[in-house]
Each structure stands twice: as C-alpha cells, then as structure tokens.
C-alpha cells in the first residue's frame, strides 16, 4: 500500500484524489471524511500527494520489491592510491 493516510490529520479536502497522476485515490462511496486508496499498486512514488496535502497527512511507503539495495560503505581510504 504505497500511500498511507493518517486519518487523524486528514481534513477530507480530497486534493490527493484530484491530483494523483495515477488515479490511485478515490472518494468513499458514503460521506466519509477521508479518501480511499483504490489502486495502491499503481503508485509511481512521485510524491505529488505528499507535496500537495495541506494537512501533511500523507506519506509514501515503498513496496518491498522496490526496496533499495544498500550495504555499508567501506572505511575511508585515500582514493588516489
């Protein structure tokens, strides 16, 4: 589920529903306050919803298959040698 909505912070402005380029979000069928994440696996991690959210209620979780591979960097040494 890449986008995560903090329901305590969400003010129900539906800005994320309007601007998400991948149409990930939708409105709840009944008059619920928060939007619903309809298509989580179509998130492109563009962060538009996070940037646009006036209540800072959104965050993106990168799915496990897209997790970056990282290791410890070696100890500093003089690269010129």
């Amino acid at each position: 589920m890449p986008p995560i909505i903090n329901k305590d912070k969400c003010i129900g402005c539906m800005n994320c529903v309007t601007i998400c380029p991948m149409d990930v979000y939708g409105k709840q069928e009944k008059d619920a306050k928060t939007p619903v994440i309809h298509y989580p696996d179509e998130c492109w991690h563009c962060n538009a919803c996070v940037v646009e959210c006036p209540a800072k209620a959104l965050s993106i979780r990168v799915p496990l298959p897209a997790m970056m591979v990282f290791v410890d960097a070696p100890k500093k040494k003089d690269a010129q040698q």
Binding site: H45, C46, N47, V50, S59, I60, R61, V62, M67, M68, V69, F70, V71, D72, A73
Partner: peptide, 19 residues
Amino acid sequence: ATLQHLADEGFDFRKHMVE
C-alpha cells in the same frame, strides 16, 4: 519519496552505498 524511503530504512549517505 526516494529521500523519505532512504531515511525510513536508516540509510546514511556517509555510511552506506546504494546498488
């Protein structure tokens, strides 16, 4: 979102390197 992901995973540009 990339920066956030790295931060969430405890990545440090000083200590780690990404494949």
